[in-house]
Amino acid sequence: MKQILSLMLVTVLGLLIIVSLDGNPLYVDYGDAQAANRISTRFIRRDVNGGNQAVWFGVSEDLESGPANIVTAIVADYRSFDTLGEVTVLFVSSLGVALLLGTLTTKRMELEFHPNFMLRVGSRALFGIILMTGVYIILHGHLTPGGGFPGGTMIASSILLLYLSDDQFRTKVKSFKVLESIAGSLYVVLGLVGLFAFDYFLVNFLDNGVLGELFSAGIIPIVYVLIGLKVGSEISGIIDHFLTEEGA
Protein backbone atom coordinates (compact mmCIF):
# COMPACT_ATOMS: atom_id res chain seq x y z
CA MET A 1 0.00 0.00 0.00
CA LYS A 2 2.73 2.41 1.02
CA GLN A 3 4.70 1.62 -2.12
CA ILE A 4 1.72 2.22 -4.41
CA LEU A 5 1.06 5.51 -2.64
CA SER A 6 4.65 6.66 -3.08
CA LEU A 7 4.62 5.62 -6.75
CA MET A 8 1.46 7.69 -7.29
CA LEU A 9 3.01 10.67 -5.51
CA VAL A 10 6.17 10.47 -7.62
CA THR A 11 4.11 10.19 -10.82
CA VAL A 12 2.05 13.24 -9.91
CA LEU A 13 5.17 15.24 -9.09
CA GLY A 14 6.83 14.18 -12.34
CA LEU A 15 3.74 15.17 -14.34
CA LEU A 16 3.73 18.51 -12.54
CA ILE A 17 7.34 19.17 -13.58
CA ILE A 18 6.65 18.18 -17.20
CA VAL A 19 3.48 20.32 -17.39
CA SER A 20 5.20 23.36 -15.88
CA LEU A 21 8.19 23.10 -18.24
CA ASP A 22 6.11 22.41 -21.37
CA GLY A 23 5.39 25.60 -23.27
CA ASN A 24 7.41 27.71 -20.84
CA PRO A 25 9.06 30.57 -22.76
CA LEU A 26 12.18 30.28 -20.57
CA TYR A 27 12.84 26.73 -21.81
CA VAL A 28 12.85 26.76 -25.60
CA ASP A 29 12.67 23.56 -27.65
CA TYR A 30 15.79 21.53 -28.35
CA GLY A 31 17.74 23.13 -31.21
CA ASP A 32 15.82 26.42 -31.16
CA ALA A 33 17.98 28.14 -28.54
CA GLN A 34 19.78 31.27 -29.70
CA ALA A 35 23.19 30.88 -28.09
CA ALA A 36 24.46 34.21 -29.47
CA ASN A 37 21.77 36.18 -27.60
CA ARG A 38 22.53 34.69 -24.20
CA ILE A 39 23.73 37.02 -21.51
CA SER A 40 26.61 34.66 -20.63
CA THR A 41 28.21 35.20 -24.03
CA ARG A 42 28.32 38.94 -23.41
CA PHE A 43 30.03 38.32 -20.06
CA ILE A 44 32.57 35.92 -21.62
CA ARG A 45 33.49 38.42 -24.33
CA ARG A 46 33.66 41.54 -22.17
CA ASP A 47 37.16 42.94 -21.63
CA VAL A 48 38.48 45.55 -19.20
CA ASN A 49 38.60 48.31 -21.84
CA GLY A 50 34.88 48.11 -22.53
CA GLY A 51 35.25 46.14 -25.79
CA ASN A 52 33.18 43.10 -26.69
CA GLN A 53 34.94 40.99 -29.33
CA ALA A 54 35.30 37.27 -30.02
CA VAL A 55 37.56 35.43 -27.56
CA TRP A 56 40.50 33.33 -28.78
CA PHE A 57 42.33 30.77 -26.66
CA GLY A 58 45.97 31.80 -26.13
CA VAL A 59 45.51 35.16 -27.86
CA SER A 60 42.93 37.27 -26.02
CA GLU A 61 44.28 39.66 -23.40
CA ASP A 62 42.80 41.85 -20.66
CA LEU A 63 39.45 40.08 -20.49
CA GLU A 64 37.16 40.94 -17.61
CA SER A 65 37.12 37.30 -16.48
CA GLY A 66 40.57 35.82 -16.99
CA PRO A 67 40.15 32.03 -16.70
CA ALA A 68 39.57 29.86 -19.77
CA ASN A 69 37.13 27.75 -17.72
CA ILE A 70 34.06 29.95 -17.35
CA VAL A 71 32.77 27.94 -14.37
CA THR A 72 35.91 28.96 -12.51
CA ALA A 73 35.27 32.58 -13.46
CA ILE A 74 31.93 32.38 -11.68
CA VAL A 75 33.06 30.30 -8.69
CA ALA A 76 36.32 32.06 -7.85
CA ASP A 77 35.89 35.53 -9.37
CA TYR A 78 32.33 36.84 -9.74
CA ARG A 79 30.97 34.81 -6.80
CA SER A 80 34.10 34.39 -4.70
CA PHE A 81 32.31 35.48 -1.53
CA ASP A 82 29.88 32.60 -2.07
CA THR A 83 32.86 30.22 -2.29
CA LEU A 84 34.15 31.61 1.00
CA GLY A 85 30.78 30.63 2.48
CA GLU A 86 31.08 27.12 1.03
CA VAL A 87 34.54 26.72 2.56
CA THR A 88 33.04 27.85 5.88
CA VAL A 89 30.28 25.22 5.56
CA LEU A 90 32.92 22.52 5.07
CA PHE A 91 34.88 23.88 8.04
CA VAL A 92 31.79 23.75 10.27
CA SER A 93 31.05 20.17 9.17
CA SER A 94 34.61 19.05 9.94
CA LEU A 95 34.30 20.83 13.29
CA GLY A 96 31.12 18.85 13.96
CA VAL A 97 32.85 15.56 13.12
CA ALA A 98 35.72 16.50 15.43
CA LEU A 99 33.31 17.35 18.26
CA LEU A 100 31.39 14.09 17.85
CA LEU A 101 34.21 11.65 17.19
CA GLY A 102 37.31 13.35 18.59
CA THR A 103 38.95 11.94 21.72
CA LEU A 104 42.07 12.87 23.67
CA THR A 105 43.98 9.65 23.07
CA THR A 106 43.41 8.00 19.71
CA LYS A 107 44.53 4.81 18.02
CA ARG A 108 43.66 3.19 14.73
CA MET A 109 40.34 1.39 14.69
CA GLU A 110 40.79 -2.38 14.56
CA LEU A 111 38.72 -3.94 11.80
CA GLU A 112 38.39 -7.58 10.84
CA PHE A 113 40.37 -6.87 7.72
CA HIS A 114 44.16 -7.00 7.48
CA PRO A 115 45.83 -5.90 4.24
CA ASN A 116 48.64 -8.05 2.94
CA PHE A 117 52.06 -7.02 1.65
CA MET A 118 51.10 -6.70 -2.03
CA LEU A 119 48.17 -4.38 -1.26
CA ARG A 120 50.39 -2.22 0.91
CA VAL A 121 53.13 -1.80 -1.71
CA GLY A 122 50.74 -1.38 -4.63
CA SER A 123 48.77 1.31 -2.84
CA ARG A 124 51.97 3.20 -2.05
CA ALA A 125 52.66 3.32 -5.79
CA LEU A 126 49.10 4.44 -6.58
CA PHE A 127 49.19 7.07 -3.81
CA GLY A 128 51.68 9.24 -5.69
CA ILE A 129 49.70 9.11 -8.93
CA ILE A 130 46.43 10.12 -7.24
CA LEU A 131 48.17 12.88 -5.27
CA MET A 132 49.78 14.30 -8.42
CA THR A 133 46.43 14.19 -10.26
CA GLY A 134 44.87 16.16 -7.41
CA VAL A 135 47.66 18.76 -7.50
CA TYR A 136 47.31 19.00 -11.30
CA ILE A 137 43.57 19.55 -11.06
CA ILE A 138 44.06 22.29 -8.46
CA LEU A 139 46.81 24.07 -10.41
CA HIS A 140 44.91 23.93 -13.72
CA GLY A 141 41.57 24.85 -12.15
CA HIS A 142 41.34 28.05 -14.22
CA LEU A 143 42.11 26.26 -17.51
CA THR A 144 40.46 22.82 -17.38
CA PRO A 145 37.46 21.33 -15.54
CA GLY A 146 38.02 20.89 -11.84
CA GLY A 147 39.48 23.23 -9.28
CA GLY A 148 40.01 23.55 -5.57
CA PHE A 149 37.14 21.41 -4.31
CA PRO A 150 37.58 18.28 -6.51
CA GLY A 151 41.37 18.54 -6.37
CA GLY A 152 41.40 18.82 -2.58
CA THR A 153 39.03 15.88 -2.30
CA MET A 154 41.33 13.89 -4.58
CA ILE A 155 44.27 14.62 -2.26
CA ALA A 156 42.11 13.42 0.64
CA SER A 157 41.25 10.28 -1.36
CA SER A 158 44.95 9.48 -1.72
CA ILE A 159 45.31 9.77 2.07
CA LEU A 160 42.26 7.51 2.42
CA LEU A 161 43.96 4.94 0.18
CA LEU A 162 46.94 4.87 2.56
CA TYR A 163 44.54 4.39 5.49
CA LEU A 164 42.82 1.55 3.60
CA SER A 165 45.95 -0.31 2.69
CA ASP A 166 47.84 -0.11 5.98
CA ASP A 167 46.14 -0.78 9.29
CA GLN A 168 48.90 0.97 11.27
CA PHE A 169 49.05 4.16 9.20
CA ARG A 170 48.31 7.57 10.75
CA THR A 171 48.76 11.00 9.19
CA LYS A 172 50.13 13.96 11.07
CA VAL A 173 46.72 15.36 12.01
CA LYS A 174 48.14 18.33 13.92
CA SER A 175 50.09 19.67 10.94
CA PHE A 176 47.03 19.18 8.72
CA LYS A 177 45.04 21.33 11.11
CA VAL A 178 47.71 24.04 11.04
CA LEU A 179 47.78 23.92 7.22
CA GLU A 180 44.00 24.15 7.07
CA SER A 181 43.80 27.20 9.33
CA ILE A 182 46.65 28.96 7.51
CA ALA A 183 45.04 28.37 4.09
CA GLY A 184 41.62 29.53 5.29
CA SER A 185 43.03 32.66 6.94
CA LEU A 186 45.07 33.52 3.83
CA TYR A 187 41.90 33.36 1.73
CA VAL A 188 40.22 35.90 4.01
CA VAL A 189 43.40 38.03 4.07
CA LEU A 190 43.43 38.00 0.26
CA GLY A 191 39.86 39.28 0.31
CA LEU A 192 40.71 41.97 2.88
CA VAL A 193 43.63 43.16 0.73
CA GLY A 194 41.11 43.62 -2.08
CA LEU A 195 38.75 45.46 0.29
CA PHE A 196 41.26 47.92 1.73
CA ALA A 197 43.77 48.47 -1.09
CA PHE A 198 41.36 48.19 -4.02
CA ASP A 199 37.62 48.48 -4.61
CA TYR A 200 35.78 45.70 -2.83
CA PHE A 201 36.09 42.36 -1.00
CA LEU A 202 37.90 39.57 -2.94
CA VAL A 203 38.43 41.74 -6.03
CA ASN A 204 40.71 40.22 -8.68
CA PHE A 205 43.49 42.81 -8.29
CA LEU A 206 46.26 41.09 -10.27
CA ASP A 207 46.77 41.30 -14.02
CA ASN A 208 44.64 38.86 -15.99
CA GLY A 209 47.29 38.09 -18.62
CA VAL A 210 46.74 36.06 -21.78
CA LEU A 211 43.74 33.70 -21.76
CA GLY A 212 44.77 30.05 -21.48
CA GLU A 213 48.28 30.38 -20.01
CA LEU A 214 49.18 28.79 -16.69
CA PHE A 215 50.12 32.14 -15.11
CA SER A 216 46.97 34.06 -15.95
CA ALA A 217 43.60 34.99 -14.46
CA GLY A 218 45.02 37.11 -11.62
CA ILE A 219 44.36 35.83 -8.10
CA ILE A 220 42.15 32.91 -9.19
CA PRO A 221 44.98 30.27 -9.22
CA ILE A 222 46.13 31.52 -5.79
CA VAL A 223 42.57 31.28 -4.43
CA TYR A 224 42.19 27.78 -5.86
CA VAL A 225 45.49 26.57 -4.40
CA LEU A 226 44.39 27.88 -0.98
CA ILE A 227 40.95 26.24 -1.32
CA GLY A 228 42.56 22.97 -2.45
CA LEU A 229 44.94 22.90 0.52
CA LYS A 230 42.11 23.73 2.93
CA VAL A 231 39.66 21.16 1.52
CA GLY A 232 42.33 18.44 1.26
CA SER A 233 43.55 18.83 4.83
CA GLU A 234 40.01 19.21 6.17
CA ILE A 235 38.69 16.01 4.58
CA SER A 236 41.87 14.15 5.58
CA GLY A 237 41.13 15.20 9.15
CA ILE A 238 37.54 13.91 8.80
CA ILE A 239 38.85 10.58 7.45
CA ASP A 240 41.27 10.32 10.36
CA HIS A 241 38.43 10.92 12.82
CA PHE A 242 36.32 8.25 11.11
CA LEU A 243 39.07 5.62 11.25
CA THR A 244 40.34 6.11 14.79
CA GLU A 245 38.90 5.22 18.15
CA GLU A 246 39.56 5.94 21.79
CA GLY A 247 42.58 4.27 23.35
CA ALA A 248 46.33 4.55 23.67
Binding site: M109, L111, E112, A156, S157
Partner: peptide, 28 residues
Protein backbone atom coordinates in the same frame (compact mmCIF):
# COMPACT_ATOMS: atom_id res chain seq x y z
CA UNK B 1 32.68 18.37 -16.93
CA UNK B 2 33.20 20.37 -13.73
CA UNK B 3 30.29 18.67 -12.02
CA UNK B 4 31.43 15.34 -13.46
CA UNK B 5 34.87 15.63 -11.88
CA UNK B 6 33.39 16.54 -8.50
CA UNK B 7 30.81 13.75 -8.69
CA UNK B 8 33.48 11.18 -9.66
CA UNK B 9 35.73 12.11 -6.75
CA UNK B 10 33.14 12.67 -4.02
CA UNK B 11 30.17 10.51 -5.04
CA UNK B 12 31.85 7.32 -6.11
CA UNK B 13 35.16 7.60 -4.26
CA UNK B 14 35.06 9.31 -0.90
CA UNK B 15 31.45 8.79 0.18
CA UNK B 16 31.46 5.10 -0.77
CA UNK B 17 34.59 4.33 1.21
CA UNK B 18 33.39 6.32 4.21
CA UNK B 19 30.09 4.40 4.14
CA UNK B 20 31.95 1.08 3.89
CA UNK B 21 34.20 1.94 6.81
CA UNK B 22 31.27 3.09 8.92
CA UNK B 23 29.42 -0.15 8.16
CA UNK B 24 32.51 -2.21 9.05
CA UNK B 25 32.96 -0.43 12.38
CA UNK B 26 29.22 -0.66 13.17
CA UNK B 27 29.37 -4.40 12.45
CA UNK B 28 32.34 -4.66 14.84
Amino acid sequence: PDVAVTEAVIGSGLVTSLFVFTLLSARK
